[in-house]
């Protein structure tokens, strides 16, 4: 934490290598969080770069009371919301296209590992349904679920990022799981049957 504050202070005074070190340290966290939120590599790239651009422009405002990662996650959440608004404003259907693009990538990725066409078709099908289910829950529910499930953050830190009470995070996460369960009931029953065996 002390080292981080020192880096921020150096970056604030115009030390480019210090800023680069900050980016190097946090880039994967921000990118993968944005990717888990949007499901699209292209959006995640745009969002994560925009977040670091905002960091660069806000270096003077960062006081170092909270962890930098908390600030970055918070700005990523806001940037994801703005990106979604801008998309709906320009009436482009990136979301649907991005799923297709990402599916293409996933298929290649799985194909190269398994070499089993049936398996990757099945995985792609599940993946598509998961993406659709995640898009059906509210943005807040998705944010909390992604931070807990895919970024493995404790509920207390999620509450800090979203500036809400821990109880709110718990109830929202619970609701998100219930909704996902409804959306993915076909697969959950399959899993339950597998477990019963």
């Amino acid at each position: 934490m002390k080292e981080e504050q020192l880096l921020i202070r150096r970056a604030r005074s115009g030390d480019s290598p210090a800023f680069r070190m900050i980016v190097e340290y946090h880039k994967k966290n921000v990118y993968y969080f944005a990717l888990s939120m949007t499901g699209s590599h292209y959006d995640a790239e745009d969002i994560s770069q925009e977040v670091f651009l905002k960091l660069y422009q806000s270096l003077d405002k960062i006081r170092g009371e909270a962890k930098l990662s908390t600030w970055l996650y918070r700005v990523t959440v806001n940037t994801c919301i703005n990106k979604k608004r801008k998309k709906s404003l320009s009436a482009l259907k990136f979301q649907e296209n991005s799923i297709i693009d990402e599916m293409g990538n996933i298929q290649n990725y799985e194909d190269s590992r398994t070499g089993n066409p049936e398996q990757y078709t099945e995985l792609s099908r599940i993946n598509m349904h998961i993406e659709k289910a995640l898009k059906k829950i509210t943005h807040k529910e998705r944010t909390i679920f992604v931070l807990r499930h895919y970024r493995d953050l404790p509920l207390k830190e999620i509450a800090e990022i979203l500036n809400v009470a821990e109880g709110t995070v718990k109830s929202t996460l619970f609701r998100a799981i219930k909704k996902l369960q409804k959306e993915l009931s076909f697969y959950t029953k399959e899993t339950e049957m597998e477990n019963a065996k």
Binding site: I130, T188, N195
Partner: peptide, 19 residues
């Protein structure tokens, strides 16, 4: 609990692009 556990297992199957 079993239902929630099964959702978590399904969500674990999500595969994302690896740059």
């Amino acid at each position: 609990f079993a239902e929630a556990e099964s959702v978590i297992k399904v969500m674990d199957k999500r595969r994302l692009y690896e740059p």
